[in-house]
Design a protein around this nucleic acid. Structure first.
Lengths: 352, 352
DNA sequence: TTGAAAGCGGTACCAT
DNA sequence: ATGGTACCGCTTTCAA
């Protein structure tokens, strides 16, 4: 409740001096600075952010737009962003822009225009063209995490690499009938799925297995992976011997489905995911680990540099994803195939 | 960028009139109001929130404090809050107060004191005494969702009822060795677990099964439920025939553990949860449904009335939880026990 | 019904 | 190094 005027009075200085002492801008003698600081402390003075914003133009707030809050990746990124902002004294204003909701259109119509933030982090947003235009026309720095445009600063893993590496792992284990399970290009999260699907296809082609490539369409959730896997794993003759899942949630759904159907993982079916989800350990899931929390922190760093230097060049940051071998993948059972697996290659793979 | 001064100029009126026309406060002729509105529209005028806040004291922002973002209940509540706020034109500032982190202490020390919100919603926060004092001494309305104090307005389900009803369901199915699986009172989320444990014990006592009551300690997550269940379900002689889980996440963990151990659900083991988690359907989980999203919406409603009428009496809102019978619970297999189950009671239970 | 002017609580420029 | 003062953009008395 106490304003800077009262602090100044108690310290016996003017408002301007008090302001300088408190913000650290401009000259102040060490002694007066101390006096002002202790006055502020005794009064429990906290600067009104609205007044600061009005005077300086800075809101000390970062906006975060994401389409989902309840999925592992998004929640983790959000936590990373939040932690990083807390350390820097910045507030986080959240905009939940679930696709196809009135809330989303309100956000793009009204909320963003209010510019109650110094910059924006958009996570896996996949905006349509109109939405994207709104975003950039704000005139505020924007950083995307898993963005779909190539004009903003973006941070993500290399999806192509991750899917490729996952597929190669299975190939090295002797698998040939390796299917990709993930979303359709029509859905949200489409770009990511598309890139991972491409990585998978590339790896299959490189291994001379192009004609074995197949795409099992699945909603990108645990129940989605479960439902799609149930449909496909029924027939022991036709089913693949290994699955590359577009992410761990789908992989876990597939494992649950396999167990229900009596298909043993990994002896009857190898499954590899991408994420290293919090449940991965529980399901002994082999996966390509990414750390979304780190991506959130990096996004904050990038955003802050863009806020400080608006003309700075846009950047593309690709975090490394690393293979974590657990027990959901194994060498192809010889009864399924006579392919000889190079054991040194397999060992090399297992020990990474 | 355009300010209200330019809108006023374009409409040929004064700033004051423009303000009245736009906010709808005070007298304005219909005609001028229209003129001002269209002027604002053509200029793409958006009021600066800092200026409004500075002049009125209202921030048009609601703060939300929660200890976790990545658990189902919290994410759902957050989505409910967000949707409701969006419809009302209010911003949501998020504070992730994970127990034991520096971020949490920063939030309580600095962030809350800045009062960048008109009111606060605290979800499952379980603040210690010092933290709680800070909360109420803000002088801003506070609404809790699943709160632990009895002095704030609070919304939640009736935990005692839910656990009681869950236990009664199993009793009606003929089970006697019914264990409760959930957290310890030392952990966070402690109050909820405590109340549910009490409800379970009450129901066991009412059924004359007090001496069969037992508490399997488990971290309140899927992997936690899994780990604890693995420890307990190994021995077919000693294990319970039914589990009341403190929430669906623990229940699901237990089901996954049971499947791993070859314990059939529900024929060897009945499991009931509380929540109706997004995975409940996939695991055919019988549960007491709550809808956290609704609790979020209700919390917003309550908070807004407190903001409008600060002296309004605090309230306690208890949402109903309803039994959803799926396939994780069934009548006790006669080979396990000779207890005769009243079949009408069982049917009544199954059809709810 | 409308306009003028005084704040709201800070910052920052310009003198001193 | 410090003080005076205009100003950020809007709301709200008060007078007309």
């Amino acid at each position: 409740m106490a304003g800077i005027a009262e602090v100044a009075r108690l310290a016996g200085v003017s408002k301007s001096t008090a302001s300088r002492a408190l913000t650290g801008s401009g000259y102040t003698s060490d002694e007066t600075r101390e006096r002002v600081r202790s006055a502020a402390a005794t009064l429990g003075y906290v600067a009104s952010n609205s007044a600061v914003t009005l005077a300086t133009g800075r809101t000390n707030t970062v906006g975060v737009v994401m389409p989902y809050l309840n999925r592992w990746f998004f929640a983790e990124v959000l936590e990373g962003i939040q932690q990083s902002l807390l350390e820097r004294g910045l507030d986080l204003t959240l905009y939940d822009a679930k696709p196809g909701t009135v809330g989303r259109s309100l956000i793009f119509q009204d909320y963003l225009a209010r510019k109650r933030f110094d910059g924006l982090i958009a996570v896996g947003l996949e905006p349509d063209d109109r939405e994207f235009d709104r975003l950039v026309q704000l005139g505020r720095p924007v950083v995307t995490v898993v963005g779909s445009a190539d004009t903003t600063t973006d941070v993500a893993i290399d999806d192509d690499f991750a899917a490729r590496r996952a597929t190669e792992h299975l190939v090295a284990l002797g698998h040939r009938r390796i299917a990709f399970i993930g979303g359709t290009p029509q859905q949200h999260w489409a770009h990511v799925d598309r890139r991972r699907l491409d990585g998978y296809r590339g790896a299959m082609a490189d291994a001379g297995l192009a004609e074995h490539a197949s795409h099992i369409i699945s909603e990108v959730t645990v129940p989605g992976g479960y439902a799609s896997a149930v449909d496909v794993l029924g027939d022991a003759r036709s089913r693949p011997t290994a699955l590359v899942a577009t992410c761990d949630e789908v992989a876990i759904g597939a494992i649950i489905a396999a167990r229900r159907l009596g298909v043993q993982v990994p002896s009857d079916l190898s499954v590899i995911g991408i994420d290293d989800h919090e449940f991965a350990e529980m399901f002994s899931l082999t996966t390509l680990r990414q750390v979304p929390r780190e991506q959130g922190r990096v996004a904050v760093d990038l955003l802050l540099t863009h806020i400080a230097e608006p003309d700075k060049a846009k950047a593309v940051v690709r975090m490394r994803s690393t293979l974590v071998v657990r027990n959901s993948t194994s060498a192809l059972d010889p009864q399924h195939s006579a392919v000889v697996v190079d054991s040194r290659q397999r060992q090399a793979d297992a020990s990474r």
